[in-house]
């Protein structure tokens, strides 16, 4: 069911000790400029804190930016925490520095999409709109 005011809500998160925040700021601005409401968590969150925030903020999408190499532990913990809260209609996407084979592994686990270095803004916007449309209204 749509109403005039509906907007895609996204939470953009940095998890763990990863202090690289240039990409995350670009992604946040890009999505805002496409008309979305973007909640930014700030640095150094735990996967469980991100999921709790995502539930309270009722977001459509969690976007995790990860350049630290910890992606193979962070994404599974986020997916698990979502299932534990019966909130797996919230979609998980990611970006940053992640080897190709591990991107594939993460997608098999349930991460909807991962976009790496030099992804143009329009592509990031199109991806978020696509995964939300594919999920449908809720």
């Amino acid at each position: 069911m749509q109403s005039n005011g509906d907007r895609i809500r996204v939470i953009i998160a940095k998890v763990g000790l990863d202090g690289h925040d240039r990409g995350v700021k670009i992604v946040a601005r890009t999505l805002r400029d496409a008309g979305m409401d973007v909640i930014y968590t700030g640095l150094h969150r735990t996967p469980e804190e991100v999921v709790e925030a995502a539930v309270q903020e009722d977001v459509d999408v969690i976007g995790v930016s990860i350049l630290s190499g910890a992606h193979m532990t962070v994404f599974p913990r986020i997916l698990d925490a979502l299932k534990a809260k019966k909130a797996d209609d919230i979609l998980v996407v990611g970006g940053g520095v992640i080897p190709d084979d591990e991107c594939e592994a993460l997608k098999k686990l349930g991460v909807k999409e991962i976009l790496l270095q030099d992804t143009p803004p329009a592509e990031i916007v199109a991806m978020v709109k696509r995964v939300v449309t594919e999920r449908g209204t809720r």
Binding site: R7, A28, R29, L31, R32, D33, A34, G35, M36, D37, V38, I39, Y40, T41, G42, H44, R45, T46, E48, E49, E52, A53, Q56, E57
Partner: peptide
């Protein structure tokens, strides 16, 4: 311009995580 927003108040509220007695919404 776009109608979108960046909601950043949570950046300063990291300490509140994990407590079911707190609900925070932007």
């Amino acid at each position: 311009f776009s109608g979108g927003s960046i909601l950043g108040d949570r950046i300063r509220m990291g300490d509140l995580g994990g407590d079911p007695g707190v609900f925070m919404r932007s």
